[in-house]
Design a protein around this nucleic acid. Structure first.
Lengths: 220, 220
DNA sequence: ACTTGTTTGTGAACGATTTCACATGGGCAC
DNA sequence: GTGCCCATGTGAAATCGTTCACAAACAAGT
């Protein structure tokens, strides 16, 4: 909702989101052999305006060369450092059900440095068993085991009814970043950052679009 | 990005999103026995301002009674009609892999009227077999079978590399609403509405928050 | 019926984000 | 070294979204 303080200035939520896009484009450009790239080219690939690209980047520093553009590899690394994707993160996943299992197997997470290293569930039949090489721990030990493993990010993939409860334990465990797949609004301590992945809401947006005959670009 | 024309006026993207939230709250309120609800109460439950709630709703009509508030059941139904969740939708899922399987089993979709009635994959070993009661069709028949089944919404859960290709077939099949789980920007015809579920990007947002020591509320 | 209290609906003010437009400065050719 | 070209970086303007503040309207009580 409100902008995010970084240092003194404030970044727009949307800027961070676009940064993720830039990062992906830069990786692609590097593969394609580009040495430098202009804000125009970068913008075209993401259907944005060149001005937007320059504003976004200039917020974090002066990465380009006038008359030339941005050095691809270098910018890629700088964006990566800003996003924190130049390091690996220790991730715990709570709820090894339908969705949870899929997320454990989701290659892209680990490929980008998000390593799921702990699994939790409340089902006695699952606890103690292995899932894709990881043992499933009892959710009742969340707080302790999260601390021991030095978990930095937690993914909540439990039924909505117990999500808040799980959330509270995770917070007690000192985790400051949470990705929530349960479709409820969770109460979080002031120093915890939570992102919601509300899949049903995206479908509702689509049905809204269909009912109201929204077209194409206007819908994203 | 840009606002969405509904009739003549334009709705903000964020308004639609909040409408989904209101709908959920209204369902809960109805269960709790509320007959009417004020914008203040509604706002509190979603951590918004009363003015925001009134602006959002007033965009679509005049649903409340001054001095009293909004009639819960009636408003719930009106919001539902606006969102298109008062009807059922025929959904196809392409890519019965890790994520795809999880989505088929995701109860909340069907509970809200989004019925996955067709599955597609390109893996010969899967084609023809049953998955949760649905037969898996050959992705090469996408266009035809989608038309035959009268599919209205498609979910793309295939590897990024083939997502665009699948997208094109879906568009040929006449589907106007797409939920995309592949982490690439897809080119879509002007009259197709696409929503992206980029899970890695949410994690990147979290790692950004951790690196930059963003706190709590500022992060959502 | 009149008055009082409450809450909606909305124009106007405000704040945030995007786009514009141009001065600035580096590369490159001669 | 000089001059031209080009793309960045950035204030200023425009657009978009949120909040404020209040008039209008309805309910309830007397």
């Amino acid at each position: 909702m409100c902008p995010i303080p970084v240092g003194i200035k404030r970044v727009a939520e949307s800027t961070i989101h676009r940064l993720s896009h830039y990062w992906r484009v830069l990786i692609a450009l590097e593969k394609e052999g580009y040495k430098t790239v202009s804000s125009r080219e970068l913008a075209q690939r993401e259907k944005l305006t060149p001005a937007q690209v320059r504003k976004d980047l200039s917020f974090f520093g002066s990465f380009g060369t006038r008359g030339l553009g941005y050095p691809v590899t270098q910018l890629k690394e700088q964006v990566s450092a800003i996003l924190g994707t130049n390091q690996t993160w220790r991730v715990a996943l709570v709820g090894v059900g339908n969705m949870g299992s899929a997320l454990v197997g989701y290659k892209e997470f680990s490929r980008q440095g998000f390593n799921i290293i702990k699994l939790f569930d409340n089902d006695q039949r699952k606890i103690g068993s292995f899932h894709k090489g990881l043992i499933i721990s009892d959710v009742r030990n969340l707080e302790v085991e999260i601390k021991q493993a030095g978990i930095e990010i937690a993914i909540i993939a439990v039924p909505s009814a117990v999500a808040q409860q799980v959330m509270d334990e995770i917070a007690k465990g000192g985790v400051k970043a949470i990705l929530n797949f349960a479709s409820v609004k969770l109460k979080v301590p002031g120093d915890v950052c939570i992102r919601n992945e509300h899949m049903s809401m995206e479908l509702e947006h689509l049905s809204f679009a269909l009912v109201n005959k929204i077209t194409g670009k206007q819908c994203e």
